[in-house]
């Protein structure tokens, strides 16, 4: 503290705000909204640390922690429409895939199993696999159509809108991969996820490409 006491400006690492507290704010607030908030905190922290660095640290951490629920709530409310749209899109996509599985291809659920077990090959299962990929592509298109915000960056769209949907749709396969629920081989499951996700991405990419008239 003493060595910084006479420095009027930001003075090197010793007077820099605690980096973990900054990360907490970045995490809860989002990179795009955090700049003015972090700037305000840095300004106040610089002022306080001239008098008592320990107190300044406590103050900064207090602000970071007490701000977290507000930041999260604000972020959720700003993205409420998108989050709801992701949920609806995933539910609809799930419904389409489940309906196909239950009513059309109930006994062909091992479609990926045959890829690693050629002896079990049945033409209908390949048809099922192709339909599932088409289902995932349509799901990707639906999620992109309902949730993509062309005023936000591609990265933010992916993290907040597409990735949660992909994760939700992959959950059954991931569970099966981890727990071997249905007894299929791990390789078969990896193929299942590995081929479904690009299909989802392709569907989403087509919609984004078609609608990308506004700049990111």
């Amino acid at each position: 503290m003493a060595k910084n006491a006479e420095s009027p400006g930001i003075n090197k690492p010793s007077s820099a705000p605690p980096s973990f507290a900054q990360k907490l704010i970045l995490l809860t607030c989002g990179k795009e909204n955090s700049a003015p908030l972090l700037g305000d905190l840095a300004e106040e922290y610089t002022r306080l640390s001239r008098f008592d660095r320990r107190k300044a640290l406590q103050w900064y951490w207090g602000q970071a922690v007490s701000s977290a629920p507000h930041n999260i709530a604000s972020r959720l409310s700003q993205n409420a429409r998108s989050i709801l749209a992701v949920i609806i899109a995933v539910a609809l996509s799930y419904a389409v895939i489940a309906i196909w599985d239950i009513f059309v291809s109930r006994n062909a659920a091992q479609q990926f199993h045959q890829w690693t077990n050629p002896a079990s090959y049945e033409p209908a299962r390949r048809v099922y696999a192709i339909v599932q990929w088409i289902g995932f592509a349509l799901a990707g298109a639906l999620v992109a159509k309902l949730t993509f915000n062309y005023e936000k960056s591609l990265r933010e769209n992916f993290l907040l809108r597409l990735a949660p949907a992909v994760l939700a749709l992959s959950t059954p396969s991931l569970f099966a991969l981890l727990g071997g629920v249905d007894g299929y081989s791990v390789t078969a499951r990896i193929i299942s996820i590995g081929l479904s996700l690009p299909a989802f991405g392709l569907g989403a990419a087509i919609i984004v490409w078609r609608n990308a008239t506004k700049p990111f």
Binding site: I10, P36, Q63, S67, H70, N71
Partner: peptide, 30 residues
Amino acid sequence: SVGALYATLSRLEQKGYVSSRVGEATAERG
């Protein structure tokens, strides 16, 4: 807390009661 303040300012902006603009950056603000 700054979080509470910015959440409120953001809400007021959405309601159309305030507007904002980006100002200058300073060294003490990192």
